[in-house]
Structure formats: C-alpha cells, structure tokens
Write a protein that binds this DNA or RNA. Structure first.
Lengths: 135, 135
DNA sequence: ACAAATGATACTATATTAGTATCATTTGTC
DNA sequence: GACAAATGATACTAATATAGTATCATTTGT
C-alpha cells in the first residue's frame, strides 16, 4: 500500500526546490535536479498551477513560481490535489449505510485514526520540510 | 486512496461472523450472510487458514474455525496478511538512501505518523469490534 | 462409492497509477 | 513580424495492483 503517490511526492520535491531557490524556475531545471521524467513533471506542475499553488508565465523567461508563502502549502493539501481525499475509512458493501455492525465499529475507529493523521499532515508544509532538511 | 482493501475488509467481516456464531462455519454460510462472491470468500479464508488465523476441516461437516482467541486477532495483523506491511512512508527515487534532504525530512515525519497509526490498528481486534458492534 | 466440504493454483477483468506524445498558445528578442 | 523558448491543454499508452473467476485435487463422513 502506498500512502503517498509519485505525483504527490514529485510535487513536494518540486515545491521544495522552487521555494528554496529562485523566484521563477523552469521545468528543465527541475527535471535536471530532481531526476523526474520531463513530461510527467510538466503535467504535475500544470496541475499545481491550476490548483493555485503555483503561478506560471509562458515565453522566453517563463517558468513557475510559488503563489503562496511556503508555510501555507501543506503536505495534506498537495495529497488532496493528486490523490483526492486520502480516506482511511471506506465502506465496501455497496449500500449507502453499512449494514454490518462490526464493520461500522471498525469504520468509527478508522475515522478517529484518520482524523489524527490528517491533522498531522496539515502541520507539515513546504517551509517546515525545507527547515528540517537543512538541520 | 484505499487504506483497507476489500480482502482485508471481507476477512474482518468473516472473522467477526465466525467469532460471534458457531465454532465451525462453512463458506456457504458466510457467503449467504455477508454477500461476498463465493470464490473470493474461499480464497480469503484459505489465506487466513495458511496464516494460522483460522483452522479448517474438510469433508461433510467441515468448515473454518478461529484458531486463536478473538482478542488476539488484530486489524493490523489482518491488513498485513492481505496488504503486506501498510507503509505510509516510502521513498521513490530508486537509490537506497534518499538523496533529497526535504524528502528525507518528510519521510521522518511520515514514519512518526505511521508508528501512531500502527499502534492504534494493533489495538483494534475482532473481540473489540464485536463488542463495539453490539453496543 | 459418493457427496460435501476445503486445498491449490492458474487465469481474467477492472481500476489506478505512471508516464508519453502532440499540438496550441503566449512572450521576449532580433 | 518572424522565430525561439517557454507553458497550456488534452488524449493516449504502459505498467501495476486490486478484485474476482474457474477448475481440478484432496479429505472426510455416511
């Protein structure tokens, strides 16, 4: 089971790179430094752009730049963009309301765990990652 | 993202059923009560048998029975059987030791979160699920 | 011997993740 | 204005994991 998918992972690396280097960074520079396939990196950056995390400019001196302070970009937020809401709890029997009592009990427990995980994932952000990386 | 897969889920339901009903239960009874496809249920029970959670007897009055006390079968244990070790932290760049400082920082954080989740998943077991379900 | 159960194993289908390819659009420079 | 260098949009393909099926072998009670 993978909790963090590659696109989320690459996105976080790219964001850390951008935040700790120049204002505007080009795809090619990210590719060269992070070793991610170019078209995949482009796709990821475009998604970050659409989501309002990055801004972009086209043309000769174009590239991507952070649109918010690094501390305002959380790991949780990035995961939501690329993976949807990462649910720990999910009900499988098709019916809307789970008819299985034991399972419902499980679901409740999972929801509690999930809540804690989300809280922690919201606390980690690009700024704190960079800071921790330098230490 | 699915944290608990269907086979884990079905396995937990089956175990709750067996633990709260008769000593020995047949596949057909589980199928009738849980609404899981028969061949899939069989596969799951066979795996639980191989893993030492269930015991089985063949033949006319055969079926499956719990091999341990219900309180000794944790959700974490079942997830490990069907999903492998559910890692929240995982390093993507192929190299053994992750060369990206920010990512390593992330990894450390994820490991901490993971530790907490595992502890909680170990505390939930078949007995506690049944008890909670009855309340 | 036979029926009713599980054991073992190989196969298929579906969904998700990962990645590619291509053409369109914008922008700075000559 | 032409052109090069960047991103935008979109559709496609490949690989992997999940979910489920099919079949034959083996055991056991009557």
């Amino acid at each position: 089971m993978k909790f963090i998918t590659r696109d989320s992972d690459y996105a976080l690396r790219a964001l850390c790179y951008i935040a700790s280097n120049r204002e505007v960074v080009k795809v090619d520079e990210l590719v060269a430094n992070l070793g991610v396939p170019r078209p995949f990196m482009r796709k990821i950056l475009q998604k970050l752009n659409k989501s309002g995390i990055l801004g972009s400019t086209k043309g000769q001196h174009g590239g991507f730049r952070l649109k918010r302070p690094a501390a305002a970009v959380s790991v949780f937020g990035i995961m939501r963009i690329f993976q949807g809401k990462p649910e720990l709890s999910s009900c499988f029997l098709k019916k809307e309301v789970c008819p299985e009592r034991p399972h419902c009990a499980l679901r409740k427990k999972l929801c509690l765990i999930e809540k804690g995980v989300f809280r922690q994932l919201k606390e980690i952000n690009i700024a704190s990652l960079i800071k921790a990386g330098r230490a």
